[in-house]
Every structure is written in structure tokens, then in C-alpha cells.
Design a protein around this nucleic acid. Sequence first.
DNA 1: TGTACATCAGTGAACGCGCGTTCACTGATGTAC
DNA 2: TGTACATCAGTGAACGCGCGTTCACTGATGTAC
Lengths: 190, 190
Amino acid sequence: MRKSKAEAAETRRQIIDIAAQEFRLNGIHATGVATLMSKAGLTNGGFYKHFESKDQLVAEACSTGMAKLVDAFKTAAVEHDGNESFKAIVKRYVSMVHRDNAVGGCPLAGMGSELARADEQTRAAASQGFNDLVDVMAAHIGRRSPDAARSEAVFALAAMIGAITMSRIITDPDTSKSVLRDVTQHLNAM
Amino acid sequence: MRKSKAEAAETRRQIIDIAAQEFRLNGIHATGVATLMSKAGLTNGGFYKHFESKDQLVAEACSTGMAKLVDAFKTAAVEHDGNESFKAIVKRYVSMVHRDNAVGGCPLAGMGSELARADEQTRAAASQGFNDLVDVMAAHIGRRSPDAARSEAVFALAAMIGAITMSRIITDPDTSKSVLRDVTQHLNAM
DNA sequence: TGTACATCAGTGAACGCGCGTTCACTGATGTAC
DNA sequence: TGTACATCAGTGAACGCGCGTTCACTGATGTAC
């Protein structure tokens, strides 16, 4: 039954990826270890050959989820020049596509209130990701001082996270859309 | 064992209040019906004499939690005149006191990502609350058109919700504080 | 290079536990006469 | 106003279920000689 080191490492990576998706879609609490393992084509018992606890997986899933989002921000920015790159990031994030696809979306928006109650390790991973996102955005904001750019990026990102969270909660489709529109407009006008 | 109608109504109100607190503090999923009832000085079985299901309680707790926040916004606004009333709302919401007291705080910040996965009834209650908050804020934003004021209020509230959520996640105390500071500054400068 | 053995990835049943919900019961409240 | 009875708020045990975690086991991989 034993698998090679390479296979085991791949399995581990796969569990983390599936977890990152399920946690964002259904929530951390609502996603069980057995479900996760079965989605990875394994049985529940093997989980603890890869992770010390579910909490550890949560931290790692949060970490890789954030890293992928940071990359997506960089990609969105690179595809456009100077002034437009900030708008490109906002457009991608504050979108109906993002709202309707929590699976591959932002962990901070998908599991925000659960992360606030998570352990130190997980919150540290989320914090790191938040800072990285802010850095990428600040680099694409034209301001006299780097401090002013960073402060503005923090403000913008908070609004973006709040916008996606609210747009997912709001029942009326028009109101949900208008939240995304309003936030996008004000961020673009900054 | 039967209690009078007045007593029963009071019990019901108490269960909702306790639920509203616990859901914001520990999350909806993590708060059990039995725990809730025991905090209300009752046993679990009696729960279904007051509510059809836990989901129904979640919706009602969300509704009353939002209603109280709307009142708090109005109070904060009334205590200050004209231009300052908007700033007063922001100051109260985007504060370390709010960050550290989820129990009595904003349901949208305290259970945001869980609300996004809640049933129609609960999300409708949250939506109603969000709209009410926006209305109060818009009334205290000096803008040519009501539409512009409303759009600005939506943007501001999204940023406020995102700010509190992130400040609760972030591990480093200074960074957490600076998120609140940055968002407050930019909102005041609007 | 070939053999003997230790390692350990993965299995699947089992652990105790808390979940949301149901149910037969109790006895004070509310109501009909 | 007083009596007889129906109502129903609250009790507490029990339901099936899924949770995170543990464990003895299997057998291919990795390693030491």
C-alpha cells in the first residue's frame, strides 16, 4: 500500500488544494476531513500521515489559497500598463465571476469570519497573504509617497473584501450587482 | 411546568438575544442549540416550542442583530451635527472596541462568510439590515444627488465591514490597528 | 546487483463526542361552562 | 366566581448522524549489507 515519496508529496498537495476549494465554498467548519479525503480518492485514516490535525490543514490551505491570489493579482496587473493595472486588479476581484465562484476565489472573502476565529497559525497565513496583496496593489498606485500608496491599498482591499462578502449575502440580484458597481466606481475614482 | 404567555414571549426574546451574541462570537455552525438553551437557563428540548428549526433562529437572530446596529448608527449620527454625523458612525464602527467585541457588534462582520452560505430567509434579513445601514449613512452624506450619496454609503459600508473583518484576522497588533486607521482616514476624507 | 528488513502511505473500522431534532411526559396556565 | 378540562412551555432522554482522531493492519517502497 505504501506509495513513493513523490506520489505521497503529490497526494499531500492534492489534499491541500481540495481543502482550499472546499473551505472557501462550504466553510471550514462545514467541511469534514472524511469528505475531503474521499474527494481526493482516499480514505479518512490516511489524513494523519500528512497532517498533524485539521487545524494544520486549514493553515496550509489558507496559505496556498492566498499565494495563488497574490499571483492572480500580479498577473492582472502585468497585463495592463501603469495607471490601468490597479483598475485591472479591482475589476477582476470586484466582479460577478468572483462573487459566483467562491471555489477559486479569495480566502479572505470566502471564509473571512471563520478566519477571524481560527488559530494563530491560520491567521498568520491569512495576514501574510493580506500584506502581500496590499504590496502588489500599492506598487500599482501612483502616489507621492509609498506610505500613502500602501494606506490607500489597505483601504481599497478592505472595500473589495467587504464588497464580495456583501454581494454574496444580498438576496436581490440587482442590489447585489449594484454593490459591486458602486465599489468599483469609487475605487476607480480614487 | 407551563409558563404564562408573557413569560414564554420573554423566553423567546431571550433565546434570540443570546443566539445573536453567540453566533457573532463563535460562529453559527460552532454554536449548538443545546448550548444556547442552557445559556438561557433551559433544556434543549424546549427549543422547538419556540422555533421550527435552528435555521429559523439564525434568521431571527440576524434580523434583531441588524436592527440593533441600525439603531446604534442612528444614535451615533444624532449625537453629532451635519457633517460630523457620518464621521461619528465611521468612528464607532471602525474601532478597536468594535473589533474586540464581536458579541455586540455587526452581524455582517461577525458572521459574514457564514451568512453568504445561509438560507434565503437569513440572507434576506441580512440584506434588509445592510440596506437600512446604507440608508442611515446616505442620509448623513452631503451630496448633490441622493443616488450619489447612496452609492457612496454602499462603498463606505463595504470598506467598514472589510476593515473590521480583516482587523480581527490579522495577527500583528500594529498591522491590525493600522487597517482601522487607514480605512477611517480615507472614509473621513471622502 | 541481490537479498533481508525497516519504513511508512494508505486502509477501514472504531473511539467518544456533540450535533439538530423528536418524543412521551409534567404540571401550571388559560378557557369554557 | 368556581369547577373541569384542554392547552402548551418546559423537561430530559433518546434518535441517527457526522465530526476529528486513533489504531492495528497491509504491502509496496526505500535502505543497508
